[in-house]
Amino acid sequence: MQYMKPSTATEASDILARNEGAARILGGGTDLLVQMRSGMIEPEMIVDIKHLDGITDITAEDGGLRIGAAVSGQRLGEHEGARAMWPGVVEACELIGSTQIQGRCTMAGNLCNGGPAADSVPAMIAAAAVARIEGPKGARDCPVEEFVTGPGKTVLGKGEFVSSIFLPARPKAASDAYLRFIPRTEMDIAVASAGVNIVLADDGTIKSARVALGAVGPKVVLVADAADAIIGSKLEDPAITALVRACEAAASPIDDKRGTVEFRTTVVGVLAKRAARIAMDRAQENATGEKT
């Protein structure tokens, strides 16, 4: 095995292209090293991307934020601007693993792993985040909701890797939230999860919304019906009921060691409901400047 430490995106892309299938990206390593340890993968080459320009930076861009692919969960959590603008995304990212994992794990890695239970992904999809992909032909952008194509499968082609995640600008009267269910209080993989992002109209009703659900299907799903259920409402009971129904309908989970179909379907609706209420409270607070 070889350990490579490219210093430019072109160099990284070149190494990946030349070693297709045999090379693996090392960002935080919190999934990669586990997979290597279990014998699940035996890469011939490790490409450590932490030394690329800007890869560990959080920068303001077009009113939004660009999060480098090697920014750790803890680092993101320390960024006041990110917390204020996208609290749901930040809290989702902070739920990945323990404090120790937080010191290393990244949103980009969480995304590239392609798992349906990845904590940061529903929040990113709800936020309409966009992944920046570097490759042999230069950079391209891909909405996070289109990035994962199946369990463990992504749109990344030969020589491509994610270099950053862009969290777009948002109006003042808006916010987001993410909740997951795990059997313990920490250290588990989500059994079901929900990310909700809302924007309020001047009258306090929901003008637009995005609801994404995790761990209830082969990949994280953006549920338009769930968003439609709450748009135009102030989360009154009928809207909440419709949201829960839409989420339950969109869930197509499996029975496994972590949960049953019945449990996941029920709980994902509960989580969406609760996350929507948190997002609503935050958005109202942002709109009025007062805690609700």
């Binding site: 350990y3 340890r37 937080q102």
Partner: peptide, 18 residues
């Protein structure tokens, strides 16, 4: 657990080369 550049890490999930 060890500290690496001021952050906690699981040293089993860090390569020596890093």
């Amino acid at each position: 657990t060890v500290e690496m550049d001021g952050r906690l890490v699981c040293s089993c999930l860090v390569l020596g080369a890093e």
